[in-house]
Design a protein around this nucleic acid. Structure first.
Length: 757
DNA sequence: CAGTGTGCAA
């Protein structure tokens, strides 16, 4: 990769990303920003998205003022729900370096607007398709069949086909053909941008379709809307429905709206999702099977079980039978809210109604039970699952691997990784992410014994008595069963454990290599996991070793992480901005996890100014959802490092207002929450970190008597403290390492072991 | 020819 002219020499052997050509649009991080986020046009999809964070859903064009339960309730629950919401289906936007989902794959166009015309070559596959098309003659059905049987990968293929087939062979594809092409693209291994681009090419630029008078119909639009929703571009989807479609005199139907509703639900914009339902009611659009299922799923995920059940019954009354999707949605929702009795009831009920559980039902149940540490139940479900002859898929394996990792049974998870490969299930990025993430899980509790060969046998004896009952019909060759039982034993405190050594920690490096060999692309979650692993390293050298793995995967992310770690400060900031921009359309939990991981690593290694810059950026981009008012700082979704950096910023800002002559509010509070959201750091870690920080800098805050997750102080007291001359020095953060002119590469820094926060 | 449902990160 060519190195860049402008920025100073990098420590890394990998050059940073070239500076973006519209850097000048960016604000300096500590400049006073307006309420509305900067809205650069780095890629063509960002131009209309600025309202997303600040506008209320009700103000969206076209949202009706429909009456009914949801809209009233929606206002009430508005922000109070967001904390738990991270959890569910989180496959939204494709990330910047790998796919986040097997269903909705894609690669973000990370380099800004595409360098205009596509001079790229089409693929061989496209030529094959074209050849088949010639044989298909003018039979449109045959053409459709040909097109649908291929999965083309690049827009160029579509364009090639379109032009060749129409121009040269004189075929007459109709609108259905085009819709089929688009849909094939949307469903296949084609990036969201590619599909959209194709759509644009199809109607834009004087495409023959328009010329022939073939417009887009409601199917085209619905496909388009779906692609937008899957890409997390809800703003655009809304615009298409509210503006573009009516302008073409094409009216959204039940499919359009249920697509939109599902899109909002996935994007965690639950109020908007409910508003869509209101709008449908208002327009007297009758729900059908799919939209009922969507709605039931939405309510169930929100934990609005009365509403969910009511719709569940209503659909039966309308003559639409409850189906497997309905049941799976309900089970998932109840499971998410730990309502195990209802889960069991539904599971029995569906079988009684001869709606037979499918693979997904079983996977969901196993997930619910392993997450809830109800291993006996999980084992029962698994037995039934096997009896039904269901196939174990990647998701199943991944979920189990994750459970093993979360319980510190890393060796077993690695064995399961081998097993799944042997059995023909290809691990994917999620599988690996779980294992990488175990790096920090394994730090806290001891790791299972890695040396003792007799351990396994020993362990199984123990379990045999406890969980297996009389017979061994589960078969000793069933690895899954073994793992579940091991989890059960671990949970019961029966597993022998041993401290792991420093070398053990670097199993992770082998994992990276394996990932590489298998050509599995990492995604943001992978990067977060790597950064978290760095924060668990005691020495800078160990962290560098891990960061090097990151470099192999993605030099941009590496460039930013490494640059900030090296104290490049402003020099690296434009690259960081570009990176953050690319996170924009991903779901909130993924994004906040990344910010948390990056900040934690910086804070851990003493790069506190860098950490603060990241945190301020995250706050401006509303990454943590938490409020940031003068009276109250909500930290409940931040990591320890992010929280510390945030406290500094908040106090500095407070100081400015105090010096500006404003009266502080009577009571000031910092919320840390109860640690529910940090499953790894353990209960109260955040609170302890904030407590230590507050004490360390001498800020006059105390834990509120009635709420352990809250620090309070009286405004005037804090103001007085802030006015002290010495306070400013305490509050200002610095980087431990500051970049100075070209230093030798591979220089080692004498960084003290900072230990965990 | 379109729209609903699983795993990681929180």
């Amino acid at each position: 990769m060519a190195s860049t002219p402008a920025p100073p020499t990098h420590f890394s052997s990998v050059a940073p990303r070239p500076p973006n050509n519209n850097n000048n649009q960016r604000h300096h991080h500590n400049q006073n920003r307006s309420q509305h986020r900067r809205n650069n046009n780095r890629n063509r999809w960002s131009s209309s998205s600025s309202t997303r964070y600040y506008s209320s859903p009700a103000s969206d064009a076209g949202a009706c003022a429909g009456a009914g339960v949801p809209s009233a309730a929606a206002t009430a629950f508005s922000s109070s729900l967001s904390p738990w919401l991270g959890g569910q289906k989180t496959r939204l936007a494709p990330d910047f370096s790998g796919r986040r989902s097997s269903r909705n794959p894609g690669k973000m166009n990370s380099g800004g607007p595409r360098a205009v015309p596509n001079n790229q070559q089409h693929s061989k596959a496209a030529e094959e398709v074209l050849h088949s098309l010639t044989n298909a003659g003018n039979d449109v059905a045959a053409i459709d069949s040909v097109l649908l049987s291929y999965r083309l990968y690049v827009a160029e293929d579509y364009v090639y086909l379109l032009k060749e087939s129409m121009g040269y062979f004189g075929l007459e594809p109709n609108l259905v053909t085009y819709n089929a092409i688009i849909d094939a693209g949307a469903k296949g291994e084609v990036a969201f941008e590619t599909v959209v681009q194709f759509l644009e090419e199809m109607t834009g630029a004087g495409c023959e379709m328009e010329w022939k008078g073939i417009g887009r119909d409601v199917y085209t639009y619905n496909t388009y809307v779906d692609a937008l929703c899957k890409g997390g571009r809800m703003d655009l989807a809304r615009h298409v429905i509210d503006v573009e479609m009516p302008a073409k005199n094409i009216w959204p139907n039940v499919v359009t709206y249920s697509t939109l509703m599902a899109g909002y639900a996935k994007a965690e914009h639950f109020e908007d999702a409910l508003n869509v339902y209101d709008q449908m009611k208002h327009l007297l659009i009758r729900l059908d099977r799919v939209s009922y299922n969507t709605l039931v799923g939405l309510y169930a995920n929100l934990g609005w079980f009365d509403e969910a059940v009511s719709k569940f019954k209503e659909m039966e009354c309308c003559g639409i039978k409850n189906d497997i999707v309905t049941y799976n949605a309900l089970i998932e929702g109840y499971g998410r809210h730990n309502k195990y009795v209802e889960v069991r009831k539904l599971f029995d009920e569906m079988k009684a109604r001869r709606i037979y559980p499918n693979n997904l039902t079983y996977s969901t149940l196993i997930k619910i039970y392993t997450k809830g540490r109800m291993y006996a139940e999980a084992i029962d479900v698994y037995r039934e699952f096997k009896k039904e002859g269901m196939g174990i898929d990647v998701v199943f394996y991944s979920a189990l691997i994750d459970a093993l990792c979360k319980n510190g049974l890393i060796k077993s998870s690695l064995r399961l990784l081998d097993v799944m490969t042997e059995k023909g299930s290809r691990p994917n990025v999620v599988t690996y992410n779980s294992i990488i993430d175990a790096f920090r899980v394994g730090q806290m509790p001891a790791l299972e014994c890695m040396v003792d060969a007799s351990f396994q046998a020993n362990e199984h004896q123990i379990i045999a008595g406890k969980f297996q009952g009389q017979k061994t019909d589960d078969g000793d060759n069933d690895e899954i069963m073994k793992m579940l039982k091991q989890l059960a034993a671990e949970n019961a405190g029966l597993t022998k454990k041993d401290k792991r050594t420093r070398q053990d920690k670097f199993y992770i490096v082998q994992i990276f290599q394996k990932m590489h060999e298998m050509k599995i692309k990492p995604n943001v979650v992978t990067f977060s996991a790597i950064l978290n692993a760095c924060s668990c390293c005691e020495t800078f050298q160990d962290a560098s070793k891990l960061l090097d793995e990151l470099r192999i995967f993605d030099s941009d992310v590496y460039g930013v992480a490494h640059g900030l770690l090296m104290g490049h400060g402003q020099g690296i900031w434009d690259q960081a901005q570009t990176l953050f921009d690319e996170l924009e359309h991903m779901d909130s939990s993924t994004v906040s996890a990344f910010y948390n991981a990056l900040t934690d690593m910086l804070w851990h290694f003493g790069q506190k100014l860098g950490a603060q810059m990241v945190v301020i950026e995250g706050r401006n981009r509303n990454v943590w959802k938490g409020g940031w008012s003068t009276e109250c700082l909500d930290l409940h979704l931040t990591s320890c490092g992010a929280a510390c950096a945030m406290v500094h910023s908040w106090l500095l800002e407070l100081r400015t207002t105090v010096f500006g002559g404003q009266k502080p509010p009577p009571i000031l509070s910092i919320l840390t929450g109860w640690g529910k959201h940090s499953k790894v750091v353990g209960n109260g870690a955040l609170r302890k970190a904030v407590e230590a920080l507050v004490n360390g800098i001498g800020a006059p805050f105390q834990i509120a008597e009635c709420n352990l997750g809250r620090f309070v102080s009286e405004g005037p007291v804090v103001a007085a403290w802030l006015r002290q001359p010495s306070t400013l020095n305490v509050l200002l953060l610095h980087d431990y390492i500051v970049y100075s002119q070209p230093v030798e590469r591979n220089q080692t820094f004498n960084i003290p072991s900072l230990g965990a926060l």
